[in-house]
């Protein structure tokens, strides 16, 4: 996974990879950002949980409603006050909200 390439996304503040359990494995931080490796570790853990919950909800929704198109889940994003974290699989990127290109970010974490 090329974290430096993910840092080229508009407004990227950090890029990181994590294990299936959500343990932070590698990361790149933009100089001057208030994000820390500890924050990225917490984000990774929460995002693993959120992806699992989203997968469960998508499965249940499709089964109950007969609608299709959610599974498999291709990513999850939490939009904070100043930045958003976008994750899928085992990697994620944090982008500034005012510059965020969510589609490009989801495509990047999907390709990684």
């Amino acid at each position: 996974m090329d974290l430096q390439k993910m840092m080229d996304l508009p407004g990227a503040l950090a890029a990181f990879t994590y294990s299936d359990k959500g343990e932070l494995q590698s990361h790149v931080l933009r100089e001057g950002t208030e994000l820390t490796p500890q924050v990225l570790d917490l984000l990774a853990r929460s995002c693993v949980a959120n992806l699992a919950i989203a997968g469960m909800e998508a499965r249940g929704w499709e089964a109950l409603t007969g609608q299709s198109g959610f599974q498999p889940i291709k990513g999850f994003s939490v939009v904070g006050l100043e930045w958003s974290v976008v994750v899928n699989g085992n990697c994620g990127v944090v982008v500034k909200n005012r510059d965020a290109d969510y589609e490009a970010s989801f495509n990047a974490v999907q390709a990684a």
């Binding site: 917490l42 998508a58 198109g69 959610f70 291709k74 999850f76 939490v78 939009v79 904070g80 930045w83």
Partner: peptide
């Protein structure tokens, strides 16, 4: 763990599905 780091209050979230 990192006060005023810019995450809260959360504004929203996105679930990206396969086609929706």
């Amino acid at each position: 763990f990192s006060e005023n780091c810019g995450c809260r209050p959360v504004q929203g979230w996105i679930v990206r599905g396969n086609q929706m």
